[in-house]
Design a protein around this nucleic acid. Structure first.
Lengths: 249, 249
DNA sequence: CATCCGGGTTGATCCAAATCAAGCATAGCA
DNA sequence: TGCTATGCTTGATTTGGATCAACCCGGATG
Protein backbone atom coordinates (compact mmCIF):
# COMPACT_ATOMS: atom_id res chain seq x y z
CA UNK A 1 0.00 0.00 0.00
CA UNK A 2 1.45 3.27 -1.08
CA UNK A 3 -0.31 4.95 1.80
CA UNK A 4 1.60 2.97 4.38
CA UNK A 5 4.75 4.60 3.16
CA UNK A 6 3.49 7.94 4.35
CA UNK A 7 2.47 6.71 7.77
CA UNK A 8 5.64 7.49 9.63
CA UNK A 9 5.67 10.96 8.20
CA UNK A 10 3.55 13.84 9.37
CA UNK A 11 0.53 11.51 9.51
CA UNK A 12 -1.16 12.39 6.27
CA UNK A 13 -3.85 9.84 7.05
CA UNK A 14 -4.90 11.68 10.15
CA UNK A 15 -7.87 13.61 8.94
CA UNK A 16 -7.92 17.33 9.25
CA UNK A 17 -11.52 18.35 8.84
CA UNK A 18 -10.58 21.82 10.01
CA UNK A 19 -8.50 22.46 6.95
CA UNK A 20 -10.93 20.83 4.56
CA UNK A 21 -12.59 23.30 2.27
CA UNK A 22 -15.79 21.28 2.48
CA UNK A 23 -16.11 21.43 6.25
CA UNK A 24 -19.08 23.75 5.95
CA UNK A 25 -20.95 21.30 3.74
CA UNK A 26 -19.94 18.03 5.29
CA UNK A 27 -20.29 16.48 8.74
CA UNK A 28 -17.92 18.88 10.55
CA UNK A 29 -20.50 21.63 10.23
CA UNK A 30 -22.50 19.93 12.96
CA UNK A 31 -19.64 19.53 15.39
CA UNK A 32 -18.37 22.00 17.96
CA UNK A 33 -14.83 23.12 17.33
CA UNK A 34 -13.49 21.40 20.43
CA UNK A 35 -15.20 18.13 19.53
CA UNK A 36 -13.91 18.17 16.00
CA UNK A 37 -10.95 15.97 16.69
CA UNK A 38 -13.24 13.23 17.90
CA UNK A 39 -14.72 13.21 14.44
CA UNK A 40 -11.29 13.35 12.91
CA UNK A 41 -10.28 10.35 15.01
CA UNK A 42 -12.79 8.08 13.38
CA UNK A 43 -12.41 9.26 9.79
CA UNK A 44 -10.17 7.60 7.28
CA UNK A 45 -9.33 10.26 4.84
CA UNK A 46 -8.05 10.39 1.35
CA UNK A 47 -9.00 7.13 -0.27
CA UNK A 48 -8.74 7.49 -4.01
CA UNK A 49 -10.83 5.69 -6.60
CA UNK A 50 -10.33 5.81 -10.33
CA UNK A 51 -13.11 6.27 -12.80
CA UNK A 52 -15.36 3.23 -12.79
CA UNK A 53 -14.05 1.74 -9.56
CA UNK A 54 -16.52 0.57 -6.95
CA UNK A 55 -16.49 2.23 -3.54
CA UNK A 56 -18.84 -0.40 -2.21
CA UNK A 57 -21.06 -3.08 -3.66
CA UNK A 58 -24.69 -3.93 -3.20
CA UNK A 59 -25.31 -6.87 -0.84
CA UNK A 60 -21.82 -6.79 0.67
CA UNK A 61 -21.48 -6.12 4.43
CA UNK A 62 -22.17 -2.52 5.31
CA UNK A 63 -19.19 -1.03 7.12
CA UNK A 64 -18.97 2.65 6.40
CA UNK A 65 -20.53 5.59 4.78
CA UNK A 66 -18.44 7.94 2.69
CA UNK A 67 -18.14 11.65 2.18
CA UNK A 68 -17.11 12.73 -1.28
CA UNK A 69 -14.05 14.92 -1.09
CA UNK A 70 -13.43 15.47 -4.78
CA UNK A 71 -14.80 13.91 -7.95
CA UNK A 72 -18.25 12.39 -8.03
CA UNK A 73 -20.09 9.18 -7.33
CA UNK A 74 -23.05 7.36 -8.79
CA UNK A 75 -25.19 4.95 -6.79
CA UNK A 76 -27.41 2.35 -8.35
CA UNK A 77 -29.47 -0.71 -7.60
CA UNK A 78 -29.06 -3.82 -9.68
CA UNK A 79 -32.05 -6.10 -9.91
CA UNK A 80 -31.84 -9.85 -10.29
CA UNK A 81 -32.76 -9.37 -13.92
CA UNK A 82 -29.60 -7.33 -14.36
CA UNK A 83 -31.44 -4.05 -14.78
CA UNK A 84 -29.69 -1.05 -13.33
CA UNK A 85 -31.51 1.79 -11.64
CA UNK A 86 -29.40 4.82 -10.87
CA UNK A 87 -30.55 6.16 -7.51
CA UNK A 88 -28.34 9.18 -7.10
CA UNK A 89 -25.33 11.29 -7.97
CA UNK A 90 -23.08 12.58 -5.22
CA UNK A 91 -20.80 15.58 -5.34
CA UNK A 92 -18.09 16.87 -2.99
CA UNK A 93 -19.41 17.46 0.51
CA UNK A 94 -22.21 14.94 0.15
CA UNK A 95 -22.58 11.66 2.02
CA UNK A 96 -22.91 8.34 0.21
CA UNK A 97 -24.33 5.21 1.76
CA UNK A 98 -27.01 6.70 3.97
CA UNK A 99 -29.60 4.43 2.40
CA UNK A 100 -27.77 1.51 3.95
CA UNK A 101 -27.21 3.12 7.35
CA UNK A 102 -27.46 0.51 10.08
CA UNK A 103 -28.34 -2.22 7.62
CA UNK A 104 -26.41 -5.46 7.38
CA UNK A 105 -25.52 -5.00 3.75
CA UNK A 106 -25.29 -2.17 1.26
CA UNK A 107 -28.56 -1.52 -0.54
CA UNK A 108 -26.84 -0.19 -3.62
CA UNK A 109 -23.53 -0.03 -5.42
CA UNK A 110 -21.44 3.14 -5.39
CA UNK A 111 -19.14 3.78 -8.32
CA UNK A 112 -16.71 6.62 -8.98
CA UNK A 113 -17.71 8.58 -12.08
CA UNK A 114 -14.24 10.09 -12.34
CA UNK A 115 -11.09 10.09 -10.27
CA UNK A 116 -12.59 10.57 -6.83
CA UNK A 117 -11.37 10.88 -3.29
CA UNK A 118 -13.56 10.11 -0.31
CA UNK A 119 -13.46 10.18 3.47
CA UNK A 120 -14.62 6.99 5.12
CA UNK A 121 -16.74 6.93 8.28
CA UNK A 122 -16.91 3.46 9.84
CA UNK A 123 -20.52 3.06 10.77
CA UNK A 124 -19.99 1.60 14.24
CA UNK A 125 -17.75 4.41 15.32
CA UNK A 126 -20.02 6.97 13.76
CA UNK A 127 -23.03 5.61 15.63
CA UNK A 128 -21.04 5.61 18.82
CA UNK A 129 -19.98 9.18 18.29
CA UNK A 130 -23.45 10.44 17.44
CA UNK A 131 -24.58 8.96 20.73
CA UNK A 132 -22.18 11.31 22.44
CA UNK A 133 -22.58 14.41 20.30
CA UNK A 134 -26.25 15.43 20.14
CA UNK A 135 -25.53 18.02 17.47
CA UNK A 136 -23.99 15.41 15.25
CA UNK A 137 -26.84 13.04 15.87
CA UNK A 138 -29.31 15.74 15.01
CA UNK A 139 -27.44 16.43 11.81
CA UNK A 140 -27.37 12.77 10.85
CA UNK A 141 -31.12 12.53 11.33
CA UNK A 142 -31.47 15.62 9.23
CA UNK A 143 -29.31 14.22 6.43
CA UNK A 144 -31.21 10.96 6.44
CA UNK A 145 -34.59 12.62 6.29
CA UNK A 146 -33.30 14.94 3.60
CA UNK A 147 -32.36 11.91 1.59
CA UNK A 148 -35.90 10.58 1.93
CA UNK A 149 -37.27 13.91 0.76
CA UNK A 150 -34.93 13.93 -2.22
CA UNK A 151 -36.07 10.50 -3.16
CA UNK A 152 -39.72 11.50 -2.87
CA UNK A 153 -38.97 14.47 -5.04
CA UNK A 154 -37.45 12.16 -7.61
CA UNK A 155 -40.48 9.89 -7.44
CA UNK A 156 -42.68 12.87 -8.11
CA UNK A 157 -40.54 13.91 -11.05
CA UNK A 158 -40.74 10.40 -12.46
CA UNK A 159 -44.45 10.00 -12.08
CA UNK A 160 -45.74 13.42 -13.06
CA UNK A 161 -43.29 15.26 -15.26
CA UNK A 162 -42.32 15.24 -18.90
CA UNK A 163 -38.87 14.50 -20.26
CA UNK A 164 -38.09 18.20 -20.60
CA UNK A 165 -39.15 18.93 -17.05
CA UNK A 166 -37.07 16.11 -15.63
CA UNK A 167 -33.95 17.22 -17.43
CA UNK A 168 -34.47 20.86 -16.55
CA UNK A 169 -34.84 19.83 -12.92
CA UNK A 170 -31.63 17.83 -13.01
CA UNK A 171 -29.68 20.67 -14.59
CA UNK A 172 -30.96 23.09 -11.97
CA UNK A 173 -30.14 20.68 -9.17
CA UNK A 174 -26.59 20.29 -10.43
CA UNK A 175 -26.35 24.04 -10.88
CA UNK A 176 -27.29 24.77 -7.29
CA UNK A 177 -24.91 22.13 -6.02
CA UNK A 178 -22.07 23.73 -7.95
CA UNK A 179 -23.03 27.10 -6.54
CA UNK A 180 -22.84 25.73 -3.00
CA UNK A 181 -19.27 24.84 -3.68
CA UNK A 182 -18.53 28.34 -4.93
CA UNK A 183 -18.17 27.15 -8.49
CA UNK A 184 -19.89 28.51 -11.52
CA UNK A 185 -23.58 27.58 -11.44
CA UNK A 186 -23.97 28.19 -15.16
CA UNK A 187 -20.85 26.69 -16.60
CA UNK A 188 -19.88 23.22 -15.59
CA UNK A 189 -19.15 19.80 -16.90
CA UNK A 190 -21.52 16.94 -16.26
CA UNK A 191 -19.86 14.20 -14.25
CA UNK A 192 -22.12 11.52 -15.72
CA UNK A 193 -22.84 10.10 -19.16
CA UNK A 194 -26.11 10.63 -21.02
CA UNK A 195 -26.82 7.02 -20.26
CA UNK A 196 -26.73 7.60 -16.53
CA UNK A 197 -28.91 10.67 -16.84
CA UNK A 198 -31.44 8.67 -18.84
CA UNK A 199 -31.44 5.83 -16.35
CA UNK A 200 -31.72 8.15 -13.36
CA UNK A 201 -34.61 10.09 -14.87
CA UNK A 202 -36.43 7.07 -16.24
CA UNK A 203 -35.93 8.02 -19.88
CA UNK A 204 -34.33 6.52 -22.98
CA UNK A 205 -30.91 7.84 -23.94
CA UNK A 206 -32.32 9.05 -27.22
CA UNK A 207 -34.88 11.16 -25.42
CA UNK A 208 -32.21 12.77 -23.25
CA UNK A 209 -30.19 13.58 -26.32
CA UNK A 210 -33.19 15.07 -28.11
CA UNK A 211 -34.14 17.25 -25.17
CA UNK A 212 -30.57 18.54 -24.91
CA UNK A 213 -30.57 19.59 -28.53
CA UNK A 214 -34.08 21.04 -28.20
CA UNK A 215 -32.95 23.17 -25.25
CA UNK A 216 -29.94 24.17 -27.25
CA UNK A 217 -32.02 25.21 -30.24
CA UNK A 218 -34.20 27.29 -27.93
CA UNK A 219 -31.11 29.04 -26.65
CA UNK A 220 -31.67 27.82 -23.10
CA UNK A 221 -28.43 25.92 -22.81
CA UNK A 222 -25.29 25.26 -24.75
CA UNK A 223 -23.94 21.74 -24.62
CA UNK A 224 -20.96 20.11 -26.24
CA UNK A 225 -20.56 16.62 -24.92
CA UNK A 226 -20.45 16.88 -21.16
CA UNK A 227 -19.63 20.56 -21.13
CA UNK A 228 -22.79 22.48 -20.34
CA UNK A 229 -23.54 26.15 -20.15
CA UNK A 230 -26.85 27.36 -18.79
CA UNK A 231 -27.68 30.39 -20.90
CA UNK A 232 -31.15 31.07 -19.54
CA UNK A 233 -31.70 29.81 -16.02
CA UNK A 234 -35.05 31.56 -15.79
CA UNK A 235 -36.31 29.64 -18.78
CA UNK A 236 -35.19 26.40 -17.18
CA UNK A 237 -37.02 27.24 -13.98
CA UNK A 238 -40.04 28.08 -16.05
CA UNK A 239 -39.93 24.68 -17.69
CA UNK A 240 -40.02 22.93 -14.33
CA UNK A 241 -42.78 25.12 -12.99
CA UNK A 242 -45.05 25.16 -15.98
CA UNK A 243 -46.14 21.67 -15.34
CA UNK A 244 -46.99 22.30 -11.72
CA UNK A 245 -49.32 25.03 -12.88
CA UNK A 246 -51.22 22.77 -15.21
CA UNK A 247 -52.94 21.17 -12.24
CA UNK A 248 -55.08 24.27 -11.81
CA UNK A 249 -56.71 24.41 -15.19
CA UNK B 1 -43.36 13.80 36.05
CA UNK B 2 -46.82 15.19 35.38
CA UNK B 3 -47.68 11.74 34.24
CA UNK B 4 -47.07 10.40 37.70
CA UNK B 5 -50.37 11.94 38.68
CA UNK B 6 -52.19 9.47 36.55
CA UNK B 7 -50.22 6.55 37.76
CA UNK B 8 -52.43 5.65 40.67
CA UNK B 9 -55.50 6.00 38.47
CA UNK B 10 -56.29 3.81 35.53
CA UNK B 11 -53.62 5.88 33.73
CA UNK B 12 -55.44 6.59 30.47
CA UNK B 13 -52.66 8.67 28.93
CA UNK B 14 -49.72 6.73 30.24
CA UNK B 15 -48.52 4.59 27.40
CA UNK B 16 -48.07 0.89 27.91
CA UNK B 17 -45.91 -0.31 25.08
CA UNK B 18 -45.54 -3.62 26.91
CA UNK B 19 -49.17 -4.44 26.42
CA UNK B 20 -49.34 -3.14 22.88
CA UNK B 21 -49.79 -5.91 20.36
CA UNK B 22 -47.55 -4.02 17.96
CA UNK B 23 -44.56 -3.83 20.27
CA UNK B 24 -42.66 -6.27 18.12
CA UNK B 25 -43.11 -4.12 15.00
CA UNK B 26 -42.82 -0.68 16.48
CA UNK B 27 -40.11 1.19 18.37
CA UNK B 28 -40.28 -0.94 21.55
CA UNK B 29 -38.66 -3.82 19.71
CA UNK B 30 -35.37 -1.93 19.90
CA UNK B 31 -35.53 -1.18 23.61
CA UNK B 32 -34.40 -3.34 26.50
CA UNK B 33 -37.21 -4.36 28.81
CA UNK B 34 -35.89 -2.29 31.69
CA UNK B 35 -35.56 0.80 29.51
CA UNK B 36 -39.02 0.46 28.12
CA UNK B 37 -40.60 2.84 30.54
CA UNK B 38 -38.27 5.60 29.40
CA UNK B 39 -39.82 5.21 25.99
CA UNK B 40 -43.27 5.07 27.51
CA UNK B 41 -42.54 8.28 29.36
CA UNK B 42 -42.13 10.28 26.18
CA UNK B 43 -44.99 8.77 24.18
CA UNK B 44 -48.40 10.29 23.99
CA UNK B 45 -50.66 7.45 23.23
CA UNK B 46 -54.10 7.00 21.87
CA UNK B 47 -54.78 10.05 19.74
CA UNK B 48 -57.70 9.34 17.45
CA UNK B 49 -58.26 10.79 14.01
CA UNK B 50 -61.34 10.34 11.87
CA UNK B 51 -61.25 9.51 8.20
CA UNK B 52 -59.85 12.47 6.28
CA UNK B 53 -58.44 14.32 9.28
CA UNK B 54 -54.89 15.61 9.08
CA UNK B 55 -52.35 14.29 11.56
CA UNK B 56 -49.90 16.94 10.46
CA UNK B 57 -49.58 19.38 7.60
CA UNK B 58 -46.81 20.12 5.15
CA UNK B 59 -44.81 23.25 6.02
CA UNK B 60 -46.04 23.46 9.60
CA UNK B 61 -43.47 23.18 12.41
CA UNK B 62 -42.20 19.66 12.86
CA UNK B 63 -42.80 18.48 16.41
CA UNK B 64 -43.31 14.75 16.44
CA UNK B 65 -43.34 11.60 14.49
CA UNK B 66 -46.18 9.15 14.86
CA UNK B 67 -46.58 5.41 15.08
CA UNK B 68 -49.78 4.05 13.62
CA UNK B 69 -51.63 2.01 16.22
CA UNK B 70 -54.73 1.13 14.24
CA UNK B 71 -56.21 2.32 10.97
CA UNK B 72 -54.00 3.69 8.22
CA UNK B 73 -52.37 6.87 7.04
CA UNK B 74 -51.53 8.42 3.69
CA UNK B 75 -48.71 10.93 3.24
CA UNK B 76 -48.47 13.29 0.30
CA UNK B 77 -46.66 16.32 -1.00
CA UNK B 78 -48.59 19.23 -2.44
CA UNK B 79 -46.82 21.29 -5.08
CA UNK B 80 -47.31 25.00 -5.65
CA UNK B 81 -49.57 24.15 -8.56
CA UNK B 82 -51.86 22.23 -6.23
CA UNK B 83 -50.80 18.85 -7.55
CA UNK B 84 -50.75 16.08 -5.01
CA UNK B 85 -48.14 13.37 -4.97
CA UNK B 86 -48.86 10.50 -2.61
CA UNK B 87 -45.56 9.45 -1.08
CA UNK B 88 -46.63 6.57 1.12
CA UNK B 89 -49.21 4.50 2.95
CA UNK B 90 -48.64 3.57 6.57
CA UNK B 91 -50.16 0.67 8.44
CA UNK B 92 -50.18 -0.27 12.14
CA UNK B 93 -46.70 -0.58 13.59
CA UNK B 94 -45.17 1.78 11.04
CA UNK B 95 -43.70 5.22 11.70
CA UNK B 96 -44.98 8.33 9.94
CA UNK B 97 -43.00 11.53 9.64
CA UNK B 98 -39.50 10.15 9.27
CA UNK B 99 -39.02 12.15 6.10
CA UNK B 100 -39.24 15.29 8.22
CA UNK B 101 -37.05 14.04 11.04
CA UNK B 102 -34.97 16.88 12.44
CA UNK B 103 -36.32 19.32 9.90
CA UNK B 104 -37.95 22.60 10.85
CA UNK B 105 -41.21 21.83 9.12
CA UNK B 106 -43.05 18.78 7.88
CA UNK B 107 -42.13 17.84 4.34
CA UNK B 108 -45.50 16.29 3.67
CA UNK B 109 -49.06 16.07 4.90
CA UNK B 110 -50.31 13.01 6.76
CA UNK B 111 -53.98 12.19 6.55
CA UNK B 112 -55.98 9.40 8.16
CA UNK B 113 -57.50 7.11 5.54
CA UNK B 114 -59.97 5.73 8.06
CA UNK B 115 -60.59 6.05 11.78
CA UNK B 116 -57.02 5.85 13.00
CA UNK B 117 -55.23 5.93 16.32
CA UNK B 118 -51.59 6.91 16.65
CA UNK B 119 -48.87 7.21 19.25
CA UNK B 120 -47.02 10.50 19.20
CA UNK B 121 -43.27 10.76 19.76
CA UNK B 122 -42.15 14.36 20.35
CA UNK B 123 -39.05 14.70 18.28
CA UNK B 124 -36.92 16.51 20.84
CA UNK B 125 -37.52 13.91 23.49
CA UNK B 126 -37.03 11.11 21.02
CA UNK B 127 -33.67 12.51 19.92
CA UNK B 128 -32.64 12.92 23.53
CA UNK B 129 -33.61 9.37 24.30
CA UNK B 130 -31.86 7.88 21.29
CA UNK B 131 -28.72 9.61 22.50
CA UNK B 132 -28.96 7.54 25.65
CA UNK B 133 -30.13 4.24 24.23
CA UNK B 134 -27.75 3.05 21.52
CA UNK B 135 -30.08 0.25 20.52
CA UNK B 136 -32.87 2.70 19.91
CA UNK B 137 -30.59 5.01 17.97
CA UNK B 138 -29.44 2.13 15.86
CA UNK B 139 -33.04 1.22 15.15
CA UNK B 140 -33.94 4.77 14.22
CA UNK B 141 -31.07 4.89 11.74
CA UNK B 142 -32.25 1.60 10.38
CA UNK B 143 -35.82 2.80 9.96
CA UNK B 144 -34.68 5.97 8.24
CA UNK B 145 -32.42 4.16 5.82
CA UNK B 146 -35.18 1.64 5.19
CA UNK B 147 -37.42 4.51 4.25
CA UNK B 148 -34.84 5.72 1.74
CA UNK B 149 -34.62 2.25 0.27
CA UNK B 150 -38.39 2.01 -0.02
CA UNK B 151 -38.45 5.30 -1.80
CA UNK B 152 -35.73 4.16 -4.20
CA UNK B 153 -37.74 1.05 -4.89
CA UNK B 154 -40.71 3.23 -5.65
CA UNK B 155 -38.62 5.36 -7.99
CA UNK B 156 -37.50 2.25 -9.79
CA UNK B 157 -41.07 1.03 -10.06
CA UNK B 158 -42.12 4.37 -11.50
CA UNK B 159 -39.34 4.63 -14.01
CA UNK B 160 -39.01 1.08 -15.25
CA UNK B 161 -42.19 -0.87 -14.73
CA UNK B 162 -45.50 -1.15 -16.49
CA UNK B 163 -48.87 -0.40 -14.95
CA UNK B 164 -49.49 -4.08 -14.27
CA UNK B 165 -46.12 -4.51 -12.56
CA UNK B 166 -46.65 -1.48 -10.37
CA UNK B 167 -50.03 -2.63 -9.18
CA UNK B 168 -48.86 -6.18 -8.62
CA UNK B 169 -45.99 -4.83 -6.54
CA UNK B 170 -48.32 -2.71 -4.44
CA UNK B 171 -50.66 -5.62 -3.80
CA UNK B 172 -47.75 -7.82 -2.76
CA UNK B 173 -46.36 -5.12 -0.51
CA UNK B 174 -49.70 -4.73 1.23
CA UNK B 175 -50.00 -8.48 1.46
CA UNK B 176 -46.68 -8.89 3.23
CA UNK B 177 -47.50 -6.06 5.60
CA UNK B 178 -50.77 -7.73 6.54
CA UNK B 179 -48.95 -10.98 7.10
CA UNK B 180 -46.52 -9.29 9.49
CA UNK B 181 -49.50 -8.33 11.57
CA UNK B 182 -50.74 -11.91 11.58
CA UNK B 183 -53.64 -11.04 9.35
CA UNK B 184 -54.63 -12.78 6.16
CA UNK B 185 -52.13 -11.97 3.44
CA UNK B 186 -54.56 -12.97 0.70
CA UNK B 187 -57.81 -11.50 1.89
CA UNK B 188 -57.88 -7.91 2.95
CA UNK B 189 -59.51 -4.62 2.30
CA UNK B 190 -57.58 -1.77 0.70
CA UNK B 191 -57.37 1.21 3.01
CA UNK B 192 -57.05 3.66 0.11
CA UNK B 193 -59.15 4.72 -2.85
CA UNK B 194 -58.29 3.90 -6.48
CA UNK B 195 -57.42 7.53 -6.83
CA UNK B 196 -54.70 7.30 -4.19
CA UNK B 197 -53.31 4.13 -5.71
CA UNK B 198 -53.16 5.81 -9.10
CA UNK B 199 -51.46 8.89 -7.71
CA UNK B 200 -48.97 6.86 -5.68
CA UNK B 201 -48.04 4.67 -8.64
CA UNK B 202 -47.95 7.47 -11.19
CA UNK B 203 -50.92 6.19 -13.17
CA UNK B 204 -54.34 7.44 -14.20
CA UNK B 205 -57.32 6.17 -12.22
CA UNK B 206 -58.70 4.61 -15.35
CA UNK B 207 -55.55 2.58 -15.81
CA UNK B 208 -55.70 1.28 -12.26
CA UNK B 209 -59.27 0.27 -12.76
CA UNK B 210 -58.47 -1.49 -16.01
CA UNK B 211 -55.57 -3.42 -14.52
CA UNK B 212 -57.72 -4.56 -11.63
CA UNK B 213 -60.32 -5.96 -13.97
CA UNK B 214 -57.64 -7.49 -16.17
CA UNK B 215 -56.13 -9.28 -13.17
CA UNK B 216 -59.60 -10.36 -12.20
CA UNK B 217 -60.33 -11.79 -15.65
CA UNK B 218 -57.05 -13.68 -15.49
CA UNK B 219 -58.12 -15.21 -12.19
CA UNK B 220 -55.19 -13.65 -10.34
CA UNK B 221 -57.26 -11.63 -7.92
CA UNK B 222 -60.84 -11.05 -6.98
CA UNK B 223 -61.83 -7.48 -6.24
CA UNK B 224 -65.12 -5.92 -5.28
CA UNK B 225 -64.58 -2.27 -4.44
CA UNK B 226 -61.89 -2.16 -1.80
CA UNK B 227 -62.24 -5.79 -0.84
CA UNK B 228 -59.44 -7.75 -2.44
CA UNK B 229 -58.60 -11.42 -2.52
CA UNK B 230 -55.30 -12.61 -3.93
CA UNK B 231 -56.12 -15.87 -5.69
CA UNK B 232 -52.74 -16.52 -7.27
CA UNK B 233 -49.84 -14.92 -5.43
CA UNK B 234 -47.30 -16.73 -7.59
CA UNK B 235 -48.75 -15.16 -10.69
CA UNK B 236 -48.54 -11.74 -9.07
CA UNK B 237 -44.89 -12.29 -8.18
CA UNK B 238 -44.33 -13.37 -11.74
CA UNK B 239 -45.84 -10.15 -13.02
CA UNK B 240 -43.42 -8.10 -10.97
CA UNK B 241 -40.54 -10.06 -12.47
CA UNK B 242 -37.39 -9.08 -10.62
CA UNK B 243 -39.35 -7.04 -8.15
CA UNK B 244 -39.76 -9.82 -5.62
CA UNK B 245 -38.19 -7.96 -2.72
CA UNK B 246 -39.87 -5.31 -0.56
CA UNK B 247 -40.21 -7.60 2.46
CA UNK B 248 -39.26 -5.99 5.77
CA UNK B 249 -38.04 -6.79 9.24
C1' DC C 1 -88.74 9.31 -2.75
C1' DA C 2 -86.09 11.60 -6.08
C1' DT C 3 -81.81 13.75 -6.54
C1' DC C 4 -77.18 14.29 -6.13
C1' DC C 5 -72.49 13.22 -5.83
C1' DG C 6 -68.12 10.93 -5.34
C1' DG C 7 -65.96 6.76 -6.55
C1' DG C 8 -65.51 3.30 -9.86
C1' DT C 9 -65.77 1.11 -14.48
C1' DT C 10 -65.58 0.98 -19.61
C1' DG C 11 -64.86 2.56 -24.42
C1' DA C 12 -62.63 5.57 -28.08
C1' DT C 13 -59.01 8.47 -29.36
C1' DC C 14 -54.54 10.67 -29.01
C1' DC C 15 -49.79 11.60 -27.84
C1' DA C 16 -45.12 11.58 -25.58
C1' DA C 17 -41.68 8.85 -25.37
C1' DA C 18 -39.95 4.05 -26.28
C1' DT C 19 -38.11 1.36 -29.69
C1' DC C 20 -35.83 0.32 -33.90
C1' DA C 21 -32.32 1.69 -37.08
C1' DA C 22 -28.47 4.39 -38.87
C1' DG C 23 -24.83 7.24 -38.82
C1' DC C 24 -21.12 10.13 -36.56
C1' DA C 25 -17.33 11.47 -33.37
C1' DT C 26 -13.87 10.51 -30.22
C1' DA C 27 -10.61 7.73 -27.61
C1' DG C 28 -7.84 3.89 -26.92
C1' DC C 29 -5.08 0.54 -28.94
C1' DA C 30 -2.44 -2.83 -31.74
C1' DT D 1 -2.61 4.11 -39.67
C1' DG D 2 -6.54 1.69 -39.44
C1' DC D 3 -9.55 -0.91 -36.13
C1' DT D 4 -12.69 -1.37 -32.56
C1' DA D 5 -15.36 0.18 -28.81
C1' DT D 6 -18.08 3.53 -26.72
C1' DG D 7 -20.86 7.40 -26.40
C1' DC D 8 -23.82 10.64 -28.68
C1' DT D 9 -27.09 12.25 -32.10
C1' DT D 10 -30.86 11.99 -35.51
C1' DG D 11 -34.78 9.95 -38.10
C1' DA D 12 -38.89 6.69 -38.64
C1' DT D 13 -42.18 3.89 -36.49
C1' DT D 14 -44.74 1.90 -32.69
C1' DT D 15 -47.15 1.72 -28.35
C1' DG D 16 -48.65 1.98 -23.40
C1' DG D 17 -51.09 4.62 -20.99
C1' DA D 18 -53.16 9.43 -20.70
C1' DT D 19 -57.07 11.87 -21.90
C1' DC D 20 -61.78 12.61 -23.11
C1' DA D 21 -66.37 11.06 -22.56
C1' DA D 22 -70.04 8.40 -20.98
C1' DC D 23 -72.22 5.66 -17.68
C1' DC D 24 -73.05 2.96 -13.37
C1' DC D 25 -73.68 2.27 -8.48
C1' DG D 26 -74.54 3.10 -3.63
C1' DG D 27 -74.94 6.08 0.02
C1' DA D 28 -76.07 10.66 1.81
C1' DT D 29 -79.39 14.54 1.69
C1' DG D 30 -83.33 17.53 1.11
Amino acid sequence: MAQAIHLHQVSPLKASCQQCSLSNLCLPLAVEENDLERLEDIVQQGKIYNRGEHIFDQSTPMRSCFAVKSGSVKTSIITEGGDEQVTGFFMPGELVGLDSMSSDTYACTAKALERTSVCEFPIEKLEELTGKLPELQHHMYHLLSQEIQNSHQLAMLLSKNTAEERIAALLLSLSSRFRRRRMSPTNFSLPMARNDIANFLGLAVETVSRVFTRFQNQGIIRARGREVELLDVEALQLVTRDFARQGCQ
